[in-house]
């Protein structure tokens, strides 16, 4: 009995393993930064000459989204309308990191498609991106009022991710902060 069933059982176990493996996205790598303080940086403000943006500016008004984008990145344009709508709702501030981009091109992109960001830091050489573990633009982080990274999404966000993952977390963190 066992002799007949064993090979079948092994086959099913292997098939199960491969099936699960097939469903995993190798592009999604868990970030070691979650639960850690936002990496420090001091970068030129993309829109205000002579001013700088630091990691403190992200959480200056409490929980915030930190979005890594570039004008050369088509998926960034895909998720852009969501951020525009979110900015209009004024539920949570969005701070941008303009990653490996030409400042003029980035400003032009914002002028054409709209600017949902409270502040934009210009990371022209990508050095700050390395500290944040950026490997696929766009990336979106949730940073709490204490400056701790709570969440990271690699790749463009969509309505489902925003409403089912990001916003519930943002509201939960905001509720925790309220005195």
């Amino acid at each position: 009995m066992i002799r007949a069933v064993l090979p079948l059982l092994l086959l099913l176990m292997l098939a199960g393993l491969l099936w699960v493996g097939l469903g995993l996205d190798p592009g999604r790598v868990p970030s070691p930064l979650i639960g850690k303080p936002a990496p420090a940086f001091e970068l030129p403000d993309l829109e205000r000459d002579g001013e700088t943006v630091t990691e403190v500016d992200i959480s200056a008004e409490g929980v915030a989204l930190f979005n890594v984008w570039a004008s050369w990145c088509p998926p960034c344009l895909d998720e852009h309308p969501l951020f525009m709508a979110l900015a209009a709702r004024e539920e949570v501030p969005i701070v941008g990191l303009n990653y490996r981009d030409q400042p003029e091109a980035a400003r032009e992109w914002l002028a054409r498609h709209g600017n949902p960001y409270r502040r934009v830091a210009a990371d022209s050489d990508g050095r700050t991106g390395i500290d944040w573990g950026v490997y696929g633009v766009p990336e979106t982080y949730v940073v709490d009022g204490e400056g701790i990274i709570r969440y990271k999404h690699v790749g463009p966000i969509d309505e489902t991710i925003l409403e089912n993952e990001i916003m519930p977390l943002v509201r939960e963190l905001q509720a925790g902060e309220a005195p």
């Binding site: 190798p26 592009g27 790598v29 050489d125 990508g126 050095r127 991106g129 390395i130 950026v134 490997y135």
Partner: peptide, 20 residues
Amino acid sequence: CLVCQNESLAESPAELARDL
């Protein structure tokens, strides 16, 4: 290299790999 995951940092032409 996290951009093209089947290449090492030594051989990847990705910009992130160059930065790293």
